[in-house]
Every structure is written in C-alpha cells, then in structure tokens.
Design a protein around this nucleic acid. Structure first.
Lengths: 131, 131
DNA sequence: CGGGATCCCGATAGATACTG
DNA sequence: CAGTATCTATCGGGATCCCG
C-alpha cells in the first residue's frame, strides 16, 4: 500500500510549484526589485555615478554589509558597473548600465501607479479597520 | 560629555529613514506586490472570481495559513472582495475589485519588462560568475 | 576608503492539528 | 468548506571587528 500519499503528494506539488515560481521571470524580477535597498540604490544612481560612501550617506540607515551585498547583486545582474580607481585612498564608483536605467524606468511606472492609487488603498484600509 | 554619539546618531538616522521609506508610496507598493503569494493570487483572480479552495488548488504549495493571510491583506487594501454565501457547506468567493484589476495591469508591465530583459540579466550573471 | 568575516537575534513562513 | 491556533526552524539583516 502507498504510505503517506497525501502528505507526500502535497510536498511534491509544493516542490514543483516552487521550482516553477522561481523560474518565472516575473517573480525573479519581483524578488529583485522588492529588495528593501535595491529600489533606493537604483533611484540614487539614476542621477549619475556615485561613490560607495556617497551612496551610504544618501541612503541613510543602510549598513555597509547590506550596501555591499546589494551593489554586488546588482552588478552581477548587469544593472550597474563598479569602477575601481587605484589611488590613495582607493576610489570606487558605481554607475547604472543601460539595463539598469531601463529598470529605473520600470520603477517609474510602479511609482506612478503607487502615487495614483495609494489614496484609494489607504481609504479602503481605514474603512476595513473601522469595521 | 555626549556618550556613544556615533552609534546613537546612526541609529537615529536609521529610524528616520525607515519611517521615510515606509511612508513612501512606491516602497509600500513594492512591499505589497513582492510578497511571494500576492502576485500569484492576483494573477489567478484576474481570470475571474474564485473560491477559497479553488485558489488553494490553483496555487499549489500555499498553506491555508498563508493563503488566508494574503487574501485578508489584499481585501484590507481594497484589491479584492470577499463574498460569503451562507449554505451548507459555506461558500466563499474572492474577486478582484477594479483597483485590483488595475494592479494586475501594472503587474503586466512588470511581466513585460521581465520577459524582455531576463535574457540580458542571465547573460550578465553567467559572465559574472565565470570571472 | 571600501569592504570581508563572523556572530547573533527577531521576525516570519510553513507544517500540523483542530474547529464552526 | 473555509478557515484558526500553535509551534518550530530558518534566515535575513544588523552589529561588530578586522583587513588591504
């Protein structure tokens, strides 16, 4: 007899679905841009290249660890470039690639939707909480 | 003398910036749509109203807890409606509101960007990993 | 200046079991 | 059928220290 079929089949479905979701480009992108610091970094760099410490200052509250981690993953995905200028002390600049700029424009669309509809959402929320 | 000024001022900045980020509509929206299950639920409901268990089946791998949690928060934000039909057994339907449908369209834009650029991202990633 | 390495903690997802 | 309650393991993220 087949044992624990229910649980196993559920687990099976979960694994398959997880794989599907991870392979879905849309969800990959959502995972990326939803990172707390990504949108802030992209937004900051949209104005032009910037040094590591300038970014850290502009995005107040980010820890060095998270800033580096965020920059590395964005660099890996080809969204920005990292330029090291050997000097004393070392100078490192970050700059959006065309792909990164393109992503910034998408973020613009998200921003537009947010600003256009945030009122409705807040109203709905207040109404829901009141009842 | 002022003690731990550096740490305290950093903490202060962090708190202020956190508040700013949370109040930013764009980040609120990003937080919302980046939730692992939100996009899946919105996408599923885009085809029309659906029952709780149908959603659970369509979105294989979601636990009842997370499904309920997701649906509640979306309802709270006015993105979908919850309709209870008293019968035996009870029947509960979920359906996108116009606002929810509008959000679905935004997700479409995200999807378009993702599908158009995922190749570039993957290439950049492979190249980065190779070096 | 621009990080890497390590430790640690709170939040949270999910499994499981139960209920009206 | 449509959830709720509880418990646990994991893990992202920050603090801290150190290096080139």
């Amino acid at each position: 007899m087949a044992t624990t079929t229910a649980a196993q089949r559920r687990e099976q479905a979960r694994v398959e679905y997880d794989a599907f979701v991870r392979n879905c480009p849309t969800n990959q992108l959502l995972d990326r841009i939803s990172d707390k610091w990504v949108s802030l970094v992209v937004c900051a760099l949209a104005e032009g290249r910037m040094r590591y410490s300038d970014l850290g200052r502009k995005i107040a509250g980010v820890s060095p660890k998270m800033l580096t981690q965020t920059l590395r993953s964005l660099e890996r995905d080809g969204l920005l470039t990292r330029t090291v200028t050997p000097a004393v002390p070392v100078r490192v600049d970050y700059e959006l690639t065309p792909l990164g700029t393109s992503l910034f424009h998408l973020l613009g669309a998200v921003k537009d939707w947010a600003e256009a509809h945030i009122e409705q959402v807040n109203e709905a929320r207040d109404q829901y909480d009141a009842s």
